[in-house]
Simulated scan of single mutants.
Amino acid sequence: MDKKVIILTKSDKNGGYCVAGIDTSNGKFIRLVSEDEESEYALFDSDITYEDGQCLKVMDTIYVKLKDKQDCWFQPENYIIDSEYYLKKIGTATLDQIKNYLTHQDYIFYNNSNSILTNELRKQLKKYSLLIVELDELNLWRDKFKEKRIMASFLYNNQRYSYIKITDSILTEKYYYEVCQSEPRPYTLNNVIVIFSLACVFNMNASHYKLIANIIEQPRRVGFRNIMF
Rank of each mutant, 00 (worst) to 15 (best):
D2Y: 14
L8G: 09
D12A: 07
Y17V: 05
C18S: 09
C18V: 03
I22D: 07
D23M: 04
N26L: 04
G27A: 06
E35Q: 13
D36W: 10
S39D: 07
E40P: 00
E40N: 14
A42C: 09
F44R: 12
G53Q: 05
C55Q: 15
L56H: 13
V58Y: 07
V64A: 13
K65D: 06
K65Y: 06
L66M: 11
K67P: 05
Q70S: 15
W73K: 05
Q75C: 06
P76V: 08
P76A: 04
E77W: 03
Y79E: 13
I81G: 04
I81K: 08
I81H: 07
E84N: 10
Y86Q: 09
Y86R: 09
Y86K: 11
Y86A: 10
I90H: 03
I90F: 00
I98K: 02
K99S: 10
Y101W: 07
Y101N: 13
L102T: 11
D106H: 02
Y110W: 01
N111T: 12
E120F: 00
E120T: 01
L121I: 00
R122I: 02
R122F: 00
L125G: 12
Y128N: 05
Y128T: 04
Y128V: 01
L130G: 00
D136Y: 01
W141Y: 15
K146L: 12
K146Y: 12
K148V: 09
R149Y: 13
M151Y: 15
M151C: 10
Y156V: 02
N157A: 02
N157I: 01
Q159S: 08
R160P: 00
Y163E: 11
I166K: 00
T167Q: 08
D168S: 06
I170Q: 14
L171C: 07
K174F: 01
E178S: 12
S182T: 08
P186K: 02
N190S: 06
N190F: 06
N191Y: 02
I193E: 05
C200T: 13
C200K: 13
F202Q: 15
N203D: 13
N205Q: 06
N205A: 02
A206D: 14
Y209W: 10
K210D: 09
A213R: 06
I215L: 02
E217Q: 12
Q218R: 14
G223D: 12
G223A: 08
F224Q: 14
R225L: 15
